[in-house]
């Protein structure tokens, strides 16, 4: 209410307090993550071993990379269901190209193919005004089908060792693939926080109409997020192929759901405009920890789906609950 705000000399709210308030959700999720880690290390002596930690890092890479693109898409209130099948299809493209082309060119080819598929998604969604759910559902089917067609429904193995280095080598003791993941998150964080494009993406998700009216390039960035998501699916395919030096047309099935779950657990709103890349990272690690924990605890694999599904729904419930409380708080500003 207006009456509450008075002019005059005021102390600036401390920077720390502001940061904390802005990052409340991430902090809560980080706390959850730490609790999980502590609980798992108490339950299983194996949890805090080097090999398991390396294993955790390795398992974060694929979901983690794709979840960056999914975050961009969800921030504009979209959704990308095609990431899993695009990872499969671009993996096959990578495998086939490696037979003819040097590694960097083959990787580039896969990334361009992924970006193109993402462009098709984004273009139809933005210019054709078709629901993202429908368009990416279609692309999900097309992508998987292309993976089978291109590979003749066979897996491609005996990929060159130079590709395998991406998974097995280390940089300063950190596995290369995990290091790449961290760098990608750093870049994405910087982009979303400190650039025109990043803020435009948030503005689109929060109120596309107002963003357009203020002169922001809504259509361009609405397509761009899908291009990024498609291209990152191909990057994930590279690391997936590097891990076992083989790629299967069925690879990465269900990855779209894992990434959506990670983004949502990380605090993003499926209605757009709210969420952070750091939250997504925490979401990815929580997903990996839960799977790892369930394995360490020898939980029947058939039950793992139930556990993970329940956790996703619980996270969204929490988000609804919190934003409802926030909504009441916001209600004050509305005056009639």
């Amino acid at each position: 209410m207006a009456s509450e705000i008075k002019t005059g000399p005021q102390l600036r709210p401390s920077v720390l307090r502001r940061l904390l308030r802005g990052a409340q959700l991430e902090l809560r999720m980080l706390l959850l993550l730490l609790l999980l880690a502590v609980a798992l290390s108490l339950i299983s002596p194996y949890f805090f071993t080097l090999s398991n930690i390396l294993n955790l890092m390795d398992q974060s890479v694929i979901t983690g990379i794709v979840a960056i693109g999914q975050t961009f898409v969800i921030l504009i209130a979209g959704i990308d269901l095609s990431v899993g099948s695009l990872t499969g299809a671009t993996g096959i493209i990578l495998g086939l190209s490696l037979a003819e082309l040097p590694l960097p060119i083959a990787i580039l080819a896969a990334i361009v193919a992924g970006g193109l598929a993402g462009f098709v998604n984004g273009f139809i969604i933005t210019k054709g005004r078709v629901a993202a759910f429908i368009v990416t559902l279609g692309m999900m089917s097309v992508g998987r089908s292309m993976a089978y067609v291109l590979s003749g429904a066979n897996s491609i193995s005996q990929l060159p060792d130079s590709l395998g280095d991406l998974a097995s080598s280390t940089i300063l003791g950190v596995p290369t693939n995990f290091a790449v993941l961290v760098v990608l998150y750093g870049v994405a964080w910087y982009y979303l926080t400190f650039t025109k494009g990043g803020r435009t993406i948030y503005a689109i998700g929060s109120n596309a109409e107002a963003a357009r009216t203020a002169g922001l390039r809504v259509d361009f960035y609405s397509v761009l997020v899908y291009v990024i998501s498609g291209a990152l699916s191909a990057v994930a395919a590279v690391f997936l192929a590097a891990r076992i030096l083989s790629i299967d047309p069925i690879a990465a099935t269900g990855l779209e759901l894992d990434t959506i779950a990670a983004v949502v657990i990380g605090g993003a709103s499926l209605f757009g405009g709210r969420g952070t890349i750091i939250g997504t990272f925490i979401g990815v690690v929580i997903m990996v920890l839960i799977r790892n924990g369930l394995n360490l605890l020898n939980v029947n694999p058939y039950w793992q789906g139930t556990a993970i599904g329940s956790i996703i729904v619980a996270a969204v419930l929490l988000e609804r609950f919190l934003s409802a409380r926030e909504g009441m708080h916001r209600g004050q500003g509305e005056e009639g």
């Binding site: 400190f194 650039t195 025109k196 494009g197 803020r199 435009t200 948030y202 503005a203 998700g205 929060s206 109120n207 107002a210 963003a211 009216t213 203020a214 002169g215 922001l216 390039r217 405009g273 709210r274 916001r330």
Partner: peptide, 25 residues
């Protein structure tokens, strides 16, 4: 008019952001 999730500052600078040609804010 308003981007509801943004602060006053970012709402105030929204048109500035839109017409900007370079990458940063």
């Amino acid at each position: 008019g308003l981007v509801q999730d943004f602060t006053v500052r970012e709402n105030l600078l929204l048109a500035h952001l839109g017409q900007r040609r370079s990458l940063g804010l």
